[in-house]
């Protein structure tokens, strides 16, 4: 494994309720770069993210973090890894019963022995970073969707993580707020030198922030490369995704009718039955 890679994924398969959702995924995430994992809704991006943050154990295939197999982490090893990461969830996942500053203070209170005053100052610094310094004592319910995401980002940054995972930063946001979040991600890479992994289906946003793009389709890896390399790809599915064209559905009549009937449908079954009825 290259020493320039923070995370490397090899031959990762994943199942959900008996259905395979990831097929032999393998690529590397370089140090201090923004890697954008993109694809259509339901293509397995978030499942892949859950593997990377250790919320879903790998059934087959491996995830290496700086050369260490994540599957070999015990409880303590996983806790150590998670102290090095920050995660911004799609919904922000703020604790509704705590104020914004209390939300940011949670990891600081658990992992440090800082005084309450210092923790409050640190929370303020993080909120200042995401432009929410005036909302220290607000409850999450009093914030807009974009503000909640930024507050979630401030919490993800609380422990100054080496790796930041961001799930769908622009979903549900207006284009201006979404662009603001993209700028913030770029700023974090520049100023704090973080390795950032963003999961999104927003093409414009991905091209803007990515150093490396990973394109997925139906659980398969389609392409990995810089935004320019992806744009010059000759793969038909990648091109269709970049052109935002809907895929033509190849309808298999037999399997479609089998799904509708809840049993195996045989070609010609209908006509035979109709004949039987006439008889």
């Amino acid at each position: 494994m290259s020493s320039h890679n923070m995370i490397e994924i090899r031959g990762l398969d994943s199942h959900y309720k008996g259905r395979q959702v990831l097929f032999n995924i393998g690529f590397a995430i370089p140090h201090k770069k923004v890697t954008v994992i993109m694809g259509r809704s339901g293509c397995g991006k978030t499942t892949l993210l859950r593997h990377l943050i250790g919320l879903k154990p790998s059934e087959s295939g491996r995830v290496f973090v700086e050369g260490q197999d994540m599957g070999s982490f015990d409880e303590k090893g996983m806790a150590n890894y998670r102290r090095r990461i920050g995660v911004l969830f799609q919904s922000g996942a703020l604790f509704n019963s705590l104020t914004v500053s209390q939300n940011i203070a949670v990891p600081l209170k658990v992992h440090t022995r800082l005084s309450d005053e210092t923790i409050r100052i640190m929370s303020l610094i993080k909120l200042h970073l995401v432009g929410l310094a005036d909302f220290l004592d607000y409850m999450p319910s009093q914030l807009s969707g974009g503000m909640r995401k930024r507050a979630g980002l401030a919490r993800a940054l609380a422990m100054d993580p080496e790796i930041l995972f961001v799930d769908e930063p622009s979903s549900g946001l207006d284009p201006i707020t979404a662009a603001g979040l993209d700028d913030l991600i770029l700023e974090l890479r520049e100023t704090l030198g973080m390795t950032i992994i963003v999961v999104t289906h927003e093409l414009e946003s991905a091209v803007k922030i990515a150093d490396q793009m990973v394109v997925m389709d139906r659980g398969n890896l389609l392409a990995v490369g810089t935004p320019d390399e992806i744009r010059s790809s000759q793969d038909e599915t990648v091109l269709r995704f970049l052109r935002r064209e809907a895929e033509e559905q190849q309808v298999n009549t037999e399997s479609y009718l089998s799904r509708l009937l809840g049993r195996q449908y045989k070609a010609g079954e209908n006509s035979t039955r109709r004949q039987g009825g006439v008889r």
Partner: peptide, 22 residues
């Protein structure tokens, strides 16, 4: 349950905070 469906418990785990203890 609401904390579970709103990914708040996942968020705690990702912060290396034991949700059982917390």
């Amino acid at each position: 349950g609401i904390m579970r469906i709103e990914e708040q418990i996942d968020a705690l785990e990702c912060m290396a905070v034991d949700p059982h203890s917390y």
